[in-house]
Design a protein around this nucleic acid. Structure first.
Lengths: 208, 208
DNA sequence: TTTGTTTACTTAACACTGTTAACTACATTT
DNA sequence: AAATGTAGTTAACAGTGTTAAGTAAACAAA
């Protein structure tokens, strides 16, 4: 009696179809600027059909949110090959910036979109996609400290500090709150310049 | 014939009344969650009246945006009294964090809200509120470098780097993307802990 | 003081939004 | 073949930003 299996499969396919369209549209126009009707139009179904597969617009966001964290992890897998902890940390930073700039809208969905908050609060311990990525960072920081490549310090604070710096640069770069404030030439290179300054400073701290 | 003057005054008062209500509501509920009708209700006028004083909802945002930058400057005035450049820079950082946490919604309006971008682009050179604040930062950084309290380096890059770090910590603190990721006790102190680590590191870099 | 005109404001409407209730038409079970 | 379940639909509700048309009061001119 494979009939239930087939139905389940069809249901999963439909969910995937909706999610794919939603992701495309969110990335094209941003979460707020995409309506359920837009998504329905793209997949050629009635708007209400979407509500048979997802509780509401928020749930679509959450799914894509999680998808984003999986993608981010994908950017990190190649790093394991690098044996030097500090260099690995540096490459991790570069990968993070690469992910953010290559997937700007998705990055915003993951780290800026407010609506995700309550969902994460509700998920609580069960939400590990983000924990995974942050776990890798903490692990690298810890190894750096053990190898004498970072000063011995609270690993969590240090990881947060590194993450913040990159996130801040990325966000200030996205929102160009610097049109008249920064020199034209700097606007393009600011992310990399800031990143390099940051990591050189990290190096300086430990090399006395 | 002071009749035109009176009318002008009344018009300015009405603008102020609308702006005040809009600011209150934006801070209470966030920009996206406030409708023109909400604002109109609060001041007991019809929704369309607001359009006689402001082009659209965006223009309300822009006004409040500028208001926010004025407020931020206000947080910085007391700093001039501090003679030591590095200590002044540190206090400036603390003031920035204070402003952000005391005026969370306003801070988001200023540095996160996307819609502000095109307005700033259009304003271009004429928008100096932000330039003022960033100018003070650059000035302080430059003085630190001259006093040997920061390594000689590109002032703009260094200022951007400092600003980014604080902005990143503030934003990661606002969006608690760390519920399951950070230890409970750290969540409350993360901003200050991160800030202190950051400035201690800045000190370490220059003290060889 | 009685006209005409400008101005401040309102009502009604348009095209959109997320979401729900009621309905249809088909697939599955009996 | 009849009964049941269900995937998908249409219609609707209450809300959104925004505009066009209308009203009533304040002013200027006669």
């Amino acid at each position: 009696m494979g009939i239930n299996e087939r139905k389940e499969r069809e249901r999963a396919e439909m969910r995937e179809l909706i999610l794919k369209a939603a992701l495309e549209l969110f990335i094209e126009k941003g979460f707020e600027n995409v309506s359920i009707r837009n998504i329905a139009d793209r997949i050629e179904y009635s708007p209400t059909t979407i509500y048979l597969y997802f509780k509401d617009k928020q749930e679509l966001l959450h799914q894509i949110h999680d998808h984003g964290f999986s993608m981010l992890s994908g950017y990190f897998v190649a790093l394991a090959a690098e044996p030097n902890p500090f260099e690995r940390l540096r490459l991790m930073g570069l990968s993070y910036i690469k992910f953010a700039t290559e997937n700007q809208e998705l990055y915003e969905l993951m780290f800026v979109q407010q609506n995700a908050d309550e969902y994460l609060a509700q998920m609580g311990e069960d939400w590990d996609q983000g924990g995974d990525a942050f776990g890798i960072l903490k692990h690298n920081v810890e190894e750096c400290m053990r190898a004498g490549q970072l000063p011995l310090n609270n690993v969590e604070v240090y990881s947060f500090y590194i993450w913040s710096s990159l996130h801040g640069m990325i966000m200030l770069n996205f929102r160009q709150r610097c049109i008249s404030v920064l020199s034209e030439e700097f606007k393009k290179t600011m992310l990399i310049a800031g990143f390099e300054l940051f990591f050189n400073n990290l190096r300086l701290i430990t090399k006395p």
